[in-house]
Amino acid sequence: MQPLPSKLLEDAVNEMSSLPGIGKKTALRLVLHLLKRDTAAIDQFSGAFVKLKRDIRNCNICHNLCDEETCTICSDRNRDRSLLCVVEDVRDVMALENTGQYRGIYHVLGGIISPLEGTGPSDLNIESLLLRVQTGEPKEVIMALSATMEGDTTNFYLFRKLKDFNIKLSTLARGVSVGDELEYADEVTLGRSILNRTPFENNLNR
């Protein structure tokens, strides 16, 4: 790209393009767009990030992102506290919340075990998960991690740590997507589905 006519402009473009998925050209377009806004709008824009970084908290129970000490899910009295769902990060909480099917509470690990990427068990919120389970409140821990090798490793690790507690340990079902035709389902998933088939009664009241 051509050298930019202003050092200030160049700094702004460099900052913008430091974001994932944003190249130099897109960065320039966004920066020029911001430049057209009035000063108050820009203050509001940049202030939002400063405030976000300064004031955001992790829930002191489940480590989800929130504004208060405790997140809205953990402080909701109507939630079923005997069900504890372990997820990788905040996006997974949102995905599960969007289903509208889950009334339990969460525990956000903050990542997934992958020694190759330098993430070991001690980098994740596993100690606090064990403390929560020790209280005896959760009766079932659901491991809702990605169906990848790293997800498997993390599941095995949690299983080892949790198997001696008097709780039920479960994991998300792997199966045929709703609305999918069998001939187009991938073989591994279909193979799992037939091995871990479910009683038909389970489908009656859904």
């Binding site: 330098g118 070991g120 001690s122 690790y157």
Partner: peptide, 20 residues
């Protein structure tokens, strides 16, 4: 690969090794 990376980090986490 994961196990080798774990060994290179030299941590003494017995349960992690057992999982791998």
């Amino acid at each position: 690969q994961q196990r080798n990376a774990f060994l290179r980090q030299g941590q003494n986490d017995r349960s992690m090794l057992e999982v791998l």
